[in-house]
């Protein structure tokens, strides 16, 4: 069973805007974290020190109430003889350096360094929005998903409903917070702060249809260049969330970056969920009747 919730563009009528989104091309991310900083500055997202994690250069850990952009750092050790070029002597030297643990973290030294800026996906089928009991979460005229902080009462239902772990409760505040895709800036024809700050154009903002075309051209170029691990994540509409407003070009499996390989909107199973709850309620009624009316004493 699928309950279609047509909140965009239908309910906006003439005010509906083209669906806007992010294409995050992680193949050109340099891990500068300008997106994290710009987002915090513009949106007044409070500081939350998480300490030194030891997880490469990532000390902001994950997306959450106080982190609406998060740059992931993955260091992958490759076999010493896996890199192209170089003589047998050079490959042997590299192998020895790796074995001795003295190599530097640079391209070709046996380490592949993946960096990716993660963000709210602004799903087409957004579980957070569907389970929100107050209507605080809503879909904007740009097709994005935003929390109205003057309505949210901190029930926390959206937190475990999100298949990406994007939303979280801000402890001293009690409400949930997440990326708004800079709703205020969009209404003034400005691009979101993270995209504007990104120095390599790894974060690209625009109309979703145009971004998807651009992403496929980029994927084709990377594949032609021999990057056979390159892939688009959430660029299509045939997945468990019916497409996303923010999608990614990745250089490895999604789970390597902390992303679920097959995210599904829980509300897709709402039919079986309510059917089971209803059947169990009837069974309880039958049990009560049997216990009270069925016996002798």
């Amino acid at each position: 069973m699928k309950l279609e919730v047509h909140t965009w563009p239908a309910t906006y009528g003439e005010q509906a805007q083209p669906r806007m989104g992010f294409f995050t091309d992680t193949s050109i991310c340099i891990g500068c974290k300008a997106c994290e900083v710009a987002c915090k500055e513009w949106n007044h997202v409070p500081m939350q020190l998480q300490g030194f994690t030891g997880n490469s250069y990532d000390n902001s850990v994950d997306l959450g109430a106080d982190r609406w952009r998060h740059v992931a750092f993955v260091e992958q050790r490759l076999p010493a003889d896996a890199t192209d070029g170089g003589s047998l002597v050079q490959i042997a030297e590299r192998g020895a350096a790796i074995d001795a643990g003295v190599q530097t973290y640079q391209e070709g030294d046996g380490v592949r360094w993946l960096m990716a800026s993660d963000v709210c996906k602004h799903c087409t089928d957004a579980a957070c929005l569907e389970v929100c009991p107050t209507g605080s979460l809503f879909r904007t005229e740009f097709g994005t998903v935003v929390v109205q902080e003057d309505v949210c009462n901190g029930c926390g239902y959206c937190v475990p409903a999100c298949p990406f772990g994007v939303l979280d409760k801000r402890e001293d505040d009690g409400r949930v917070w997440k990326c708004t895709l800079c709703y205020d800036r969009l209404r003034d024809d400005q691009e979101p702060a993270c995209a504007q700050a990104c120095p390599t154009n790894s974060i690209q903002f625009g109309e979703l249809d145009e971004l998807r075309e651009r992403a496929d051209r980029r994927l084709a170029r990377l594949r032609d260049a021999g990057q056979d691990q390159a892939r688009l994540y959430l660029a299509d509409e045939d997945n468990g969330i019916h497409g996303a407003g923010a999608f990614f070009l990745l250089l490895d499996e999604p789970e390597v970056y902390g992303l679920p390989p097959d995210p599904v909107d829980t509300v897709r199973d709402l039919g079986s969920i309510w059917a089971a709850a209803g059947a169990a309620a009837l069974a309880l009624g039958a049990g009560l009747a049997a216990a009270v009316l069925g016996g002798r004493g």
């Binding site: 309950l3 389970v131 929100c132 209507g135 949210c152 009462n153 029930c155 926390g156 505040d173 009690g174």
Partner: peptide
Amino acid sequence: ADLGRPQRFLNMLRMFKVTSPMSVGT
């Protein structure tokens, strides 16, 4: 008591939403 903003509990009554068992349950 479990709400992050208990004084806003009445916001639960702004709507009835089948996709939200919490709303139906309210």
